[in-house]
């Protein structure tokens, strides 16, 4: 098939080209950027945001948005730590139960966000923003503002045990990317996300239970936020009410920069992966070439605007709220 230089093709390949360009640029300025140690550092830093981005991708594909991840991750992280300590404080001693438990908690929190959005008929950006505040508030409430630490060597192996030079959690994250890709492409639920995102009324008319799909989407996202919380705890060895801070901005930016359209129906898991890598390559690259990394947020802000503008079909949109 001959590739034509149409708008669709440019949009499809732009994120990958941007990622490639950035890697070449940083490597040219400082070859140490491509050293194995630095690549492992990028992969490690990408892992928690990657999980959050995967979760929110499903929701953006449906044409909704989820801004609750900071609260969800913080709450899951502190609950996970507290449960882990209560169950013996060591993976071998029964504390492994905390992992499935926290995945359920994440699913429940996501489902609750979905309920606020679907049942109370509140636009998702506001429903999820409010639920995010509730989540952070609940995390403050259960910890009383304190930090909860975990020093279990078995659990921290997620960070310390390296296979092929990369920490264990990076490998697990890669498997979860595959799982998310499978859900998206090979399950009814995954196809229904696209049906709802492509046109809600059409999906409804063809017999899709739109409300149930939305609820399932938010619950699924919640599970991925819970995984992000576990990785965050493994990386830092502790949890507090600000464990999820800044994940919202990073995750939304990643997904959008990766080429998932805010209007729904376009893009998917692989775009999110590219997006997260772009964001983290920028963050890491700036430090490697000697720029202060606090310029990152500003640059991301500019990038996300460019990405949204590029992906907007101006013939179809008459105004934005």
């Amino acid at each position: 098939m001959k590739m034509k230089l149409t708008r669709e093709n440019i949009i499809r390949w732009a994120p990958a080209l941007v990622l490639l360009g950035l890697v070449v640029l940083f490597a040219a300025i400082n070859p140490a950027f491509l050293s194995q140690r630095n690549l492992a550092r990028i992969a490690l830093a990408s892992t928690p945001p990657m999980m959050v981005a995967l979760g929110v991708t499903f929701i953006i594909v449906m044409g909704s948005i989820d801004l609750s991840m900071e609260g969800a991750v913080s709450l899951c992280a502190v609950l996970f730590c507290l449960m882990f300590l209560k169950l013996g404080g060591s993976l071998g001693a029964g504390a492994w139960l905390a992992i499935p438990a926290i995945l359920l908690c994440g699913a429940f929190f996501g489902w609750l966000t979905g309920m606020v959005h679907v049942r109370l008929q509140i636009p998702s950006f506001m429903a999820s923003l409010a639920m995010g505040f509730v989540g952070t508030g609940a995390a403050v409430l259960v910890t009383g503002g304190d930090i909860v630490r975990i020093d279990d060597d078995v659990f921290r192996a997620l960070l310390t045990w390296r296979i092929l030079g990369f920490p264990l959690m990076v490998h697990i994250a890669a498997l979860l990317v595959l799982l998310a890709w499978f859900i998206q492409n090979h399950t009814t639920l995954g196809r229904n996300f696209y049906a709802v995102g492509g046109g809600e009324e059409l999906a409804h008319a063809s017999g899709v239970n739109v409300h149930r799909v939305r609820l399932a989407g938010f619950a699924l996202a919640g599970v991925f936020y819970a995984v992000a919380a576990i990785f965050q705890v493994a990386r830092l060895g502790q949890a507090e009410s600000v464990t999820g801070a800044n994940l919202m901005f990073v995750a939304i930016t990643s997904v959008v920069v990766g080429g998932v359209a805010l209007w729904g129906g376009i893009g998917g898991v692989l775009n999110a992966v590219v997006g997260v890598l772009i964001v983290n390559v920028i963050g890491n690259g700036m430090v490697v070439i000697g720029l202060p990394n606090y310029l990152q947020d500003g640059l991301l802000g500019v990038l996300v605007i460019v990405a949204v503008v590029l992906s907007t079909d101006r013939r179809l949109v008459s105004f934005a709220k």
């Binding site: 930016t253 805010l262 949204v308 709220k321």
Partner: peptide, 13 residues
């Protein structure tokens, strides 16, 4: 045509 919650989030960044 960037929805305001994204444009203001970006400007906030």
């Amino acid at each position: 045509f960037v929805p305001s919650f994204i444009s203001t989030l970006a400007v906030g960044g």
